[in-house]
Structures are given as structure tokens and as C-alpha cells.
Design a protein around this nucleic acid. Sequence first.
DNA 1: GTCTATATTATGATAGAC
DNA 2: GTCTATCATAATATAGAC
Lengths: 215, 215
Amino acid sequence: MSTVKKGADARGKAKTTEGKSAATREAIVRAALEVFSAHGFEGASTRQIAALAGENQGLITYHFSSKENLWKAAVDSVFAGVQRELSERAKVLADADIRTRLRLWIIFLVRYAASRPEQMRLMVQEGKADSPRMKWLVDTHIRGPFEMAAPMIREAVDAGILPDAAPVHYFYIIVGACSLFFSSAPEVHRLTGDDPFDDATIEAHAEAVANLVLR
Amino acid sequence: MSTVKKGADARGKAKTTEGKSAATREAIVRAALEVFSAHGFEGASTRQIAALAGENQGLITYHFSSKENLWKAAVDSVFAGVQRELSERAKVLADADIRTRLRLWIIFLVRYAASRPEQMRLMVQEGKADSPRMKWLVDTHIRGPFEMAAPMIREAVDAGILPDAAPVHYFYIIVGACSLFFSSAPEVHRLTGDDPFDDATIEAHAEAVANLVLR
DNA sequence: GTCTATATTATGATAGAC
DNA sequence: GTCTATCATAATATAGAC
């Protein structure tokens, strides 16, 4: 906090120039995530994003220079959370037994999918083709979590807790099992009347997956 | 087959006028499915679809009158197969034991997801919001399969084959487990070097899910 | 850093010749 | 049924005032 040029502005934000800039950037990223995950990369418009963020369209070019860079920033913002939380957890649980680690991983995945249903949507939307954006996504955000999970899965298979199959299969089986319920939430709601994002329902889903995998 | 006005045309199709019209329609629907599932509804352009189909853009309006109707026709074409095949299978297997039915259902889901990876992409893309398209999707194509699977799941739970949980959870767990591997195929390929659509890999995934669920 | 105005291109849909 | 040409609108990105 150094040179304060303005005080609180019309929207009630009291920030330094740099602080204001960062806040604008953040607001745009947040809006971008919502719009990109709802409409896909091509379907999303920068005007729509600017409008949702309550900022000017010209600022998108200023802060991100292109729609593609904005997309990357938005994706970074969803994955930043998982990566960090997961590796923290991994450290703490390094010496727990394999069943406990698997169960907690699954519960984590379900809660994360429930708190950020956009993530799986982004993955599925980009998973359509082997594009440059796809390469970037895998190298930057998928390989890490996969390489953390693979040894755990292998260990469970060796211990006879899981039937024999390659880790990739289990990775996508478990991620799919944990996530689809939430990335199809309005569908679930229309089908049964339940709200998937209700706390009790989230826990029920976590229990269902964990109990199915570990028995 | 009645009044033949033209013979084989430039692209080598020998058709009646009605036959030609139907073939055009079909070509457009096939292209639309590909483009919609790759780019989502808003991201897809009718020009792109027409170009891929090798047909004129004006014909889209002629045959479908709007982009929305074309989307519905494309979705119908993916789901038509599942619905029919599933209900046929259901009849044949009505008196098989519950484990066999569950196993065959899973194998069917995996093979279907592998043969039409677009389906899950379409579902996830529309699952973003409770839109009119979403309502149409659920009412026309989701409720049927769900109501076919639910009693089977309930039976498996009652028989002690599956841990206790509501059918909706199992439905999305199993569909997610069977599908994500294929709707993220380029991602899987980049991650491990394997081709998910290789026959042996498809069977390996089916076995992995079936063995995990049934033990 | 933020805003307005605009150049350029692409979109969905229509009109009308054949 | 199929095609070309076109309308009206909306898109990304830029230029330049403040």
C-alpha cells in the first residue's frame, strides 16, 4: 500500500491504484470462469464477461491482451486451489494407511467437484480435441494430480483393496464418479427434485463413492 | 423410391429427390453433432456445420428452420441409438440374475461412451444451467434411461450387492465412471500415450468399472 | 488504469433466382 | 431442394482521449 490516488469509488471499493488494478483483474477472472465454463471458449464473449464483472470491455485487452490469455488465467484460478490443497493433504497423510488415504482423496474430490463444478466442465469442453489449449491444460494442471494419485492407486491394487487395473482407468473412473453428479446438477435437480449442492447431498455422494470403492 | 429426377451427383450419391433430401438432412445432422459437441451450442456456427457437411448454409434453414431445431435433431440422433438398444437388452435380460444385468449394463455403457463420446460432452455442456434446452434434454432423453436403471440399482442394494445409497447417486457415479475416460480421450492420450478408443483399452475400461462395482 | 469509439470480421436468418 | 447474395447484429481487438 503506497500512493493512494483515489478513495472509495462508486462501487464502494477503497483501494490503492495497484490494489484497484488487482481487484479489477480478479473480478474479470472470476466472471470469465463463470462464463467460460457455462458457454465454452468460443461460446463465451468478452463483452458478456466484462458486463458480469461490472468492468469495461477495454480492460480485458489491457489486462490480458487476448481472450486466450484470459481463459488461461481463469483456468489457473480454478486449479490453483486443488493443486495446493491436494499436495498439503498428501504431506499430512503420507503415513496414514492406504484405505484411509484413498477414502480421504475421494471425499476431497467430491467436495471439490461440488464447490467448483466449473472445473469438470472446463476439462470436458477442452477434452474434445488435441488442441494447443488442451496441451497446456494437461501439462499445467492435469499431470500433477494424476502423478500424485497413480502411486496411491497402484499401492491399493497391490494390497488387494482394488481389483487389478491400470491407474489411468481408476483415475478417470473415480474422478468421473465424483464429479458428474455436480457438473450435471440442474439435470439432477430436474430429475429428482433434489439439490445436489445441499450439504447433506454432497456428503451422501461422497459416502456413496467411498463405500463403493472401499469395501 | 418413385420419380428419379437426377442420377448420381458430383459426390457419387445416386438418389431419388426425396432420397437426396434425406441424405442432405442426415449429412447436416452428422456434422452438427460433431460441431455442437466440440464447441457447445453457442460456440458452434451454422456455417462451420454446413462446411463440414459439404452442404450449403441455406439448406440448414430450409431443413431445420433454426439453429435450435438443428441442435435438437443432432441430440436426437445420438440418443436414438442408446434408448433403443437399452430397452431391447432390458427385455432379453429381464430374468437374468441381478449381478449379470448390472455387469452387462456397465459394459454397454462403456462401449456406448466409447462409440459416442459426444454424448457426455453434450450432457455436460447443457448441464450448466436450467435452460429450456436442458429441460427438453432431460424430458426427452434422460428420464427414460434413468427410470430403467433405478429399479435395477435398488434391487442390487436390497440384495446386498451394492452398499446402501440412493439410485441417483449410483446412476451418476456409474455413468461418470464409464464415460469420462472417453470424453477426455485426447487428455488421456497425452497423459499416458495410450489410445482410449483402442478395442483392448475399451474392454479394459469396461472390466475395470465392472470389477470395481461388482465384487 | 480506465473509458469511449470504432475498424474489421463473423454470425443467424432471410429473400429470391433457378 | 438447392444455391447465391445480403441484412442486421454481435463478435474481438485496437486507438486514443482522459
